[in-house]
Structure formats: C-alpha cells, structure tokens
Amino acid sequence: MTDTKTTAVTDAVLDAEVDDIRIRFAVEIKSRPPYPGETPRLEPVRDRLATVGVPLLVAPLITESTGRALTEAQWSWADTHGNADVRARGIRISCRVPSRSVRRTRRGMPRGSGSWSIIRSLISDGVVEGEAELAERAGVSQPRVSQVLSALSAAGLVERQGRSTWTVDRSALLDSFSNHYADTRGFTSWFYSLDSPHQTCERIMAAGESLQADTVISGDVAADRLVPWRVPTHTTVYTGDHRLAAHLELTPAQGPDDANVELIVPADNSVLRIRREDDPALAHPMQVILDLQRLGGADRHEAAERVREWLLAR
C-alpha cells in the first residue's frame, strides 16, 4: 500500500517486476514535454522522486532532443506515443516509434509553409481579429486561414470567441509547433569567419541588400539582440537568393563541424515571410528558438528558453 507521504511526493507509483528484480518507479506526469533547456530546472523534482523510487517522467510526445536531455539528466521517461527510455537496476527499455506513426497522430497541427506562416503569426498575436487580416499578414488565402483555425480549434490550441475573433493558447501552440515542426532548412552553405558573429551578420546583410536578396538573421545573433544573455559564437542567416553565397568574402568550410557561419536557403518560405515586426532584419522569435535548439548545447537551450519567456511575455 502506498502511504500518504509517498502520494504527496509523486503523481503515481509504478511497481515493476522483471524475473526476480523488483523496481519501484516514482512518476512525474507533465501536461507538456519539457524543453531540453528546462531539464536542469527539473533536478529538484528528480531528487524528490528519488526518495521514493526511480524517477520516471511521463509526458505527451517527447522529441529525440528532449529525450536525450532527459536521459543525460538521469531521468527515465516515456511518452503517450510509445517512445521511452527507462533505465533501472536490471531493466533497460529504449524505444523510438517511427516518425510516420507519430505523424498520423498529430491532430490539429497543420503542415506546410502557408500553415506555418499562420501559426507563427498566431504565436505572436495571441488574438485573431478577422480572418482576412490574418490571411493578408501570413500571405495565404482566407479559406486556408479558416482551415488552419478549425484544425487548431479541434486540438484545443485556439478558441473562437465571436464571429471573427479567436483567442490563442500561445504557450501550448508554441510548444506544439516546436515539437512538430519539420527541419526545412533546404540548402545550406557553410563558412568560417574570424570576425564576430555580429560583424559577420552585418556583412552578409549588406551583401544581401546590394543583391536585393531577402535575408533574415536567426540563431545566436538574433537571440542576443532579443534577450542578451550569452556571447554569440555562431552566425545563422536565411536568404531567398542562392546567389548570395558567391558574393560573401568568407572562407568556405567543409561542413558544419568546421564552420561558424551558416547561410541557409530555406525550403519553408514562412521563415522569410514572418519576422519580428519591429526589427525585420531578425527572424520570428519562434525560428530563433528552433535554431538554438537545433544548434544545441546547454547554454543555447537556456537561451532558447529565455527567448520563449520573452516572446510569451509580450
């Protein structure tokens, strides 16, 4: 029988038996999966659960990056899609469901550049005052806006308040988009520069302006301009013009491991279409978060969380 003290510490207790080995798991249930950068903040929770049993975190879809961060932080974990990494004395369960199986269960998260443009705008605005206005801003048709809003409503991410007014659960929509967004970087050119990332961005943006090429800054430099916290070490710029790479006086690199500059022609046009409104040289904060998570490292994950907090506080 589980005592009152145990139930106060855990959301649930799971007793497992494999052959002659008995293991008790102390379960923490989350309504959303944590960001990789949030795992250090879960350390007190993990230590509290460890007084009862092996800490086991359960949440909706846990991405590969989040799963790795949880495992490195000495969590066992499982999600509602069948993915898991459970480690205890005499027990090791590791499972990653094929992505196509997960994709079939992603109700309410429309895909495609037009849909992503709408979703980026919704994350920024929080309220829709007319579908026609949202369609114009996102660069899509009004019927497409209606389809996306209906799908997001069915998923509980937006709620209709009137004939043409919708309210957005910005935090939940941001998390869902972050978990489900495909890597659509398209074509990437890598370079190395001895200049600071800020100086390198200025050179690339100037070259883009001379070519009348659509360019936008993301990653380290954009995060530093939004929420200064860590010194940028990497340059990430998106462009709509393949010619720009040839006009940069930068040292070509063999690949990402030898580079500190990446120039990306995105397959997803929403990266260039939806930007930070008061500084169009910067990518939408959601893209900045995605790139920080992609580039990796504990400090970048923390920076991503700070950008997230800044975005949701606006």
Rank of each mutant, 00 (worst) to 15 (best):
H242M: 09
Y192S: 09
Q199F: 04
R203L: 12
A12C: 07
M109G: 03
A313F: 08
H234A: 07
A222W: 04
R106I: 00
V128I: 06
R306K: 15
H198N: 14
D11A: 06
A281P: 01
A69T: 11
V9M: 15
A69M: 11
I21H: 12
H284V: 02
G186V: 10
V27E: 01
R144W: 08
V102I: 15
A132L: 13
P33N: 05
G208I: 05
I21A: 15
A213Q: 05
P98I: 07
R104G: 14
R96H: 07
D291H: 04
S99E: 09
G255C: 04
E64H: 12
G139V: 13
I23K: 09
Q199I: 02
S164F: 06
V54N: 10
V221N: 11
V158E: 02
T165W: 01
V140L: 06
I217V: 14
I123Y: 15
S121C: 12
R107A: 14
Y35D: 14
G114R: 14
V127D: 14
A206L: 07
D220Y: 08
V145Y: 04
Y35S: 11
S189Y: 03
L152E: 01
L244T: 03
L49G: 01
L134M: 06
A138H: 06
Y181L: 15
I23N: 10
L244D: 09
H242L: 07
R106E: 11
E43T: 15
R22S: 15
R48M: 06
T184I: 00
R230E: 13
A138E: 01
E64W: 13
K30W: 10
R273K: 15
L292M: 10
